Simulated scan of single mutants.
Amino acid sequence: MEKRSFPRLGREVGVVGLGAWQLGADWGTVGEDEALEILATAVEAGVTFLDTADVYGDGRSEQLIGRFLRERPNSGLTVATKMGRRVPQVPEAYTLDNFRAWTDRSRTNLGVDRLDLVQLHCPPTPVFRDDRVYDALDTLVEEKRIAAYGVSVETVEEALAAISRPGTASVQIILNAFRLKPLERVLPAAAQAGVGIIARVPLASGLLSGRYDEHTSFGADDHRNYNRQGQAFDVGETFSGVDFTVGLDAVARLRPLVPSGATMAQFALRWVIDQPGVTVVIPGARNPGQARGNVAAADLAPLPAETLAGVNAVYDELIRPQVHNRW
């Protein structure tokens, strides 16, 4: 698999990683044995970057990855986690003492002395401009609790604020064929600063997999059921903030652009990979077959210019009015 670098982390990773939210919660039930099989399948297929968070299943995702790491010492994997969403979302919570406690818990869950990469998990917007927050993160690096830090953001402005800080190693942001705004300013700024870009929600919560239709339903424990209006967290995390019916129409328009022999999901992932400045894309997987199929997107040829233009046209007509001015 093609490798790309995090300059400030000093590591290269495969361009397709694995997002491990599904292994914790909020996507329906994934059993422990199946979760470990998903991890094994992804890594055997070439994945070297895993992304999790302390809040996914209240630590379950981290713990499963920790068990997987213990069974495969010296695997060479880079594991990124996130912190901050297990407490009330107020800027006052983002202190050095809390950071130490949160990272100590993640180190225990993952079974490591030092975390590879810790990201602030979509904190309140004022946090991104608080000097004390970055001083505290720098202290964690000095204390060798973490090797590097980054941020996960909801908005372009939050990303740009973090990129301007010299210690920020990565920005995780929603980027997919339904969320083009980061291409305008965030990706160029990150590339210029040497900040890695982690592209999350690349399939728009599965909409861009092409598997859903107007009859699809989701379980009560699936955020695609209970968060469509942002009842639990930012609505942009569910279907990228796109109305489900509009998203289905857009997928139907995109389908003729899919290369022969590729799935809709692989096409959507290849689109992300082709965007200049992307370091790694982190699709999730609820079974080993999905994990294997996602990795195969890295083997597709880069999409031709006319295909990229086709994606832009569908976005401009159907998606832009819903999301472009929001995030």
Rank of each mutant, 00 (worst) to 15 (best):
68 F>N: 08
80 A>L: 01
88 P>E: 11
90 V>E: 14
75 S>Q: 06
61 S>P: 08
88 P>S: 11
63 Q>C: 10
92 E>P: 13
88 P>F: 06
67 R>H: 11
66 G>I: 07
84 G>T: 11
77 L>V: 01
101 A>F: 00
76 G>Q: 09
93 A>P: 08
52 T>L: 07
58 D>G: 07
91 P>D: 08
84 G>Y: 03
83 M>Q: 13
94 Y>W: 15
98 N>W: 04
57 G>M: 07
57 G>S: 13
93 A>G: 12
80 A>M: 09
83 M>C: 13
75 S>G: 02
69 L>R: 10
94 Y>L: 05
75 S>A: 14
64 L>V: 09
98 N>P: 10
93 A>R: 15
72 R>V: 06
73 P>D: 07
75 S>R: 05
58 D>A: 13
86 R>N: 15
62 E>R: 06
70 R>A: 12
101 A>K: 12
63 Q>N: 13
58 D>M: 04
100 R>E: 06
57 G>D: 07
55 V>F: 09
52 T>G: 07
67 R>N: 12
75 S>C: 07
87 V>Q: 13
87 V>K: 10
74 N>C: 02
90 V>F: 11
60 R>D: 05
67 R>G: 11
54 D>T: 08
85 R>P: 01
74 N>W: 00
76 G>M: 08
72 R>K: 15
61 S>G: 13
63 Q>H: 13
75 S>N: 05
89 Q>M: 14
83 M>E: 10
69 L>Y: 04
52 T>P: 06
89 Q>F: 06
70 R>C: 03
98 N>C: 10
72 R>G: 12
92 E>H: 09
76 G>C: 09
71 E>C: 02
79 V>A: 02
55 V>L: 13
56 Y>E: 01
66 G>F: 02
55 V>G: 14
54 D>P: 05
62 E>W: 01
64 L>W: 09
54 D>Y: 08
82 K>M: 03
93 A>S: 15
81 T>S: 03
54 D>W: 04
80 A>K: 00
64 L>H: 07
82 K>A: 05
95 T>Y: 05
73 P>Y: 04
99 F>D: 01
67 R>D: 11
92 E>M: 08
56 Y>F: 07
96 L>M: 00
